[in-house]
Simulated assay, not measured.
Amino acid sequence: MEVVSYLFFGVMTTLVNFIVYFFCRDLLQFQFVLANTLSWIASVLFAFVTNKKWVFHSKSETKLAWIIEAAKFIFYRGLSYLIDMASMFVCLKVLMTSDFSAKLFTQVLVVIANYFFSKLLIFNNNKK
């Protein structure tokens, strides 16, 4: 059931990411690095809440435990941001793919990496 809920909220997080990215790219005419960064921030905030509460059912006993968990989440999402940005760069600047194709490809990589980061390194100690 955990994988199913992760995939559901992963799709929802990806939607947040796509919506913010294309809003920034198409409507605000932001360059892809800024648009991708803003979409990453929005999706990380969304993912932290949904992963903590509904996917991994993590309960923080203290404020310090919550802060540590949030810091680990942000750190590992930062690593996936580097995967995302490097993949976007290669797709857009080297392979010359469309924004949509690049974003779709990078999000598949990011969702897989984030599941393992979350399962093994972030939400593994605070289940009740």
Score class of each variant (00 low, 15 high):
residue 1 M to V: 02
residue 1 M to W: 07
residue 2 E to F: 03
residue 2 E to D: 04
residue 5 S to L: 11
residue 9 F to H: 11
residue 10 G to L: 12
residue 11 V to L: 14
residue 13 T to A: 15
residue 14 T to R: 06
residue 16 V to Y: 04
residue 17 N to L: 05
residue 17 N to H: 15
residue 19 I to K: 05
residue 20 V to L: 04
residue 20 V to C: 10
residue 21 Y to G: 00
residue 21 Y to A: 00
residue 22 F to A: 04
residue 22 F to H: 06
residue 22 F to N: 01
residue 23 F to Q: 01
residue 24 C to P: 11
residue 24 C to D: 04
residue 25 R to V: 14
residue 26 D to K: 09
residue 26 D to Y: 12
residue 27 L to I: 10
residue 28 L to C: 11
residue 29 Q to E: 13
residue 29 Q to A: 12
residue 31 Q to A: 01
residue 32 F to V: 07
residue 34 L to Q: 08
residue 34 L to T: 09
residue 35 A to H: 09
residue 36 N to K: 06
residue 38 L to A: 10
residue 39 S to N: 08
residue 39 S to F: 11
residue 40 W to A: 13
residue 43 S to L: 05
residue 43 S to G: 11
residue 44 V to A: 05
residue 46 F to G: 07
residue 47 A to F: 04
residue 47 A to L: 04
residue 48 F to M: 06
residue 48 F to R: 04
residue 51 N to V: 05
residue 55 V to D: 00
residue 57 H to L: 09
residue 57 H to C: 07
residue 58 S to N: 10
residue 58 S to Y: 01
residue 61 E to V: 12
residue 61 E to T: 12
residue 62 T to N: 09
residue 62 T to I: 11
residue 62 T to H: 08
residue 63 K to L: 12
residue 65 A to R: 07
residue 66 W to P: 01
residue 66 W to K: 11
residue 66 W to Y: 15
residue 68 I to A: 08
residue 70 A to G: 08
residue 72 K to G: 03
residue 72 K to V: 05
residue 73 F to T: 00
residue 73 F to P: 00
residue 75 F to K: 02
residue 77 R to F: 14
residue 81 Y to V: 07
residue 83 I to H: 08
residue 83 I to A: 12
residue 86 A to R: 08
residue 87 S to Y: 05
residue 88 M to G: 06
residue 90 V to R: 03
residue 91 C to A: 15
residue 91 C to S: 15
residue 93 K to Q: 15
residue 93 K to E: 15
residue 94 V to H: 10
residue 94 V to A: 10
residue 96 M to I: 10
residue 96 M to A: 11
residue 97 T to M: 11
residue 97 T to N: 03
residue 98 S to Q: 09
residue 98 S to T: 15
residue 100 F to M: 09
residue 100 F to A: 04
residue 101 S to C: 06
residue 101 S to G: 05
residue 104 L to M: 14
residue 105 F to I: 15
residue 106 T to S: 15
residue 106 T to D: 07
residue 106 T to Q: 12
residue 106 T to L: 05
residue 106 T to N: 10
residue 107 Q to C: 02
residue 109 L to F: 15
residue 109 L to Q: 01
residue 109 L to R: 02
residue 112 I to E: 05
residue 113 A to D: 06
residue 113 A to R: 03
residue 114 N to M: 04
residue 115 Y to Q: 03
residue 115 Y to T: 01
residue 115 Y to A: 02
residue 116 F to G: 05
residue 116 F to Q: 03
residue 118 S to G: 09
residue 119 K to P: 04
residue 121 L to R: 01
residue 122 I to D: 00
residue 125 N to V: 05
residue 125 N to Y: 06
residue 126 N to H: 15
residue 127 K to Q: 14
residue 128 K to C: 00
residue 128 K to F: 02
